[in-house]
């Protein structure tokens, strides 16, 4: 009997600890499938962030380095500069990448550091229980914006792809989503290309993945996916910002 569906080799065969309806698992799987398809597991080094996925080193079969909050692009820079033949990816959430680690991501991008960043944006801090993130939407209620995000108090959300695509060193920038099958398939394509850009030594590549956090949004998994579609996608438009036609 032919196997039509199996766990990617790059994903270790252990249960993931994520909440029901969380889309981190999907993003993990997409990355692992891409690593398998590109045949790069043996030379890939992943950088784990701080946040709900701090221990994704327990899930990926490649070598992994756990970084301090926000510093994954700097750590990835160190790894890549030592062994340029390694394929280095950072996996970061919105607090990690767009708040505490803003300097590191901007400068890794502008240096054209030849690494790949998978940026999971769920508009909230998950692990520390639902605080306002730099990508929290206007009027969104969180534990630190209990009356909703207000511009006069909290300022505005950061559109990471739009910001980074202004930098010459960032050669591939795309925003994708996990709220339905079609978008998940597009997400995989973007992630694959972001790795291929690195394999072709083209420079910095980032894929922003809009993701669900039903637990901290106070929604059930299906409502959460719909919330991405109805609230996040209109503010964070999907699509390629840079490098669509890049030869890899």
């Amino acid at each position: 009997m032919a196997t039509v569906f199996k766990r990617p080799h790059a994903l270790i065969d252990v249960p993931l600890h994520y909440c029901p309806g969380c889309t981190h698992g999907i993003v993990h799987r997409l990355i692992a499938e891409v690593i398998d398809e590109l045949g790069i597991e043996g030379k890939t080094v992943g950088i784990s962030p701080v946040g709900c996925t701090y221990n994704n080193y327990d899930y990926f079969n490649c070598d992994m380095v756990q970084a301090a909050h926000g510093r994954a692009p700097a750590v990835g820079t160190g790894v890549k500069r030592v062994n340029p033949d390694n394929i280095v990816f950072t996996y970061q959430g919105d607090g990690d990448l767009a708040a505490i680690g803003t300097a590191e991501i901007v400068h890794a991008a502008t240096r054209g550091e030849n690494i790949t960043t998978i940026f999971v944006n769920n508009a909230i801090y998950g692990m520390t229980s639902g605080q306002m993130a730099p990508t929290t939407l206007m009027n969104q209620v969180t534990t630190t914006s209990p009356y909703g995000r207000k511009p006069e108090i909290h300022g505005f959300p950061i559109k990471v792809c739009e910001m980074l695509s202004t930098l010459d060193g960032a050669v591939f920038v795309e925003r994708v989503s996990t709220h339905d099958i079609k978008n998940i398939m597009s997400a995989k394509k973007a992630i694959k290309k972001a790795f291929q850009v690195q394999m072709a030594n083209k420079g910095f590549a980032i894929v922003e993945v809009l993701s669900a956090c039903p637990t901290n949004w106070g929604l059930n998994p299906l409502e959460a996916l719909k919330w991405i579609q109805d609230n996040m996608v209109p503010f964070y438009p999907l699509g390629n910002f840079k490098g669509k036609d890049l030869e890899v």
Binding site: V45, I47, V65, A67, A68, R71, A74, V75, G76, T77, G78, V79, K80, R81, V82, N83, N86, A103, E104, V106, H107, R111
Partner: peptide, 23 residues
């Protein structure tokens, strides 16, 4: 490799990465 980092924080974390890679 010489990298002028964006901050001391970034520099020490690059050190962390490079040391992880065995250098």
């Amino acid at each position: 490799t010489f990298v002028q980092a964006e901050s001391e924080i970034a520099a020490i974390n690059m050190v962390y990465g490079a040391a992880s890679a065995g250098a």
